[in-house]
Design a protein around this nucleic acid. Structure first.
Lengths: 108, 108
DNA sequence: GTACCCCTATAGACAGTCGATAGGGGTCAA
DNA sequence: TTGACCCCTATCGACTGTCTATAGGGGTAC
């Protein structure tokens, strides 16, 4: 298995991005991240929930109780307006990092 | 100034890479990183030296005292064989991360 | 000789992820 | 209806690595 640990700081960006298509509950977010990165990133509950609470506290996410696909109670998270701004900001920063690392790795 | 904080875990890779061209002293490494990333990453002493000691301890670097360009005593760091292996390993991992993040950011 | 700069170094605080663990609550089969 | 199992949320303690701030040795130049 080519599973890789997260780099600190990338989890927020992944969560924000997965929510652009609509609200999801916690484990749903986790599954979706694993799915769209083809299994490269596996987000464990002990990483996920602290991040969700932190981000909700920061005003980037809002939550509401609902029912999951299996009739189980689940807390759904959705992007707020501030969350969308944050997504934009973190995406830009990620790009700058990738560019800079590319320069470094190429130019010796 | 478009200066960006490091992502945790990328500093080791940057240090290893700057040393592929030959030995450098601590602040020389720091300057070189800033230079080849066009100022995007600025590594401060408080981040650099703990990293250097950690990496030397891990056997990736070896150090020797010498004179800097200004006739000042400086500790020069050079890659070991294990350091070269580590560089290869971390470079590969970085590539996987960039690919996976690219998938995530593109596919929503 | 004093002010300045280069260079190494450490201490303390802090953020974020990990592994392990807990427990509520629904479903399903015997 | 009871028990086993799974889905889902949640928290705790440990650990890693970076940041800010600070310190000080030692060469150079005026």
């Amino acid at each position: 298995m080519s599973q890789t640990n997260l780099l600190q700081g990338t989890l927020d960006l992944l969560i924000l991005k997965t929510l652009t298509l609509g609200k999801l509950h916690g484990l749903g977010i986790s599954n979706r991240i694993e799915q769209i990165t083809k299994g490269t990133f596996q987000v464990k509950p002990g990483s996920l929930f602290p991040a969700l609470h932190r981000m909700e506290n920061a005003g980037w996410l809002e939550s509401s109780w609902g029912e999951s696909a299996n009739n189980r109670r689940a807390k759904y998270y959705a992007l707020t307006k501030a969350g969308r701004r944050q997504l934009k900001s973190e995406t830009d920063e990620w790009s700058r990092i990738v560019v800079a690392m590319g320069l470094a790795l190429r130019n010796a």
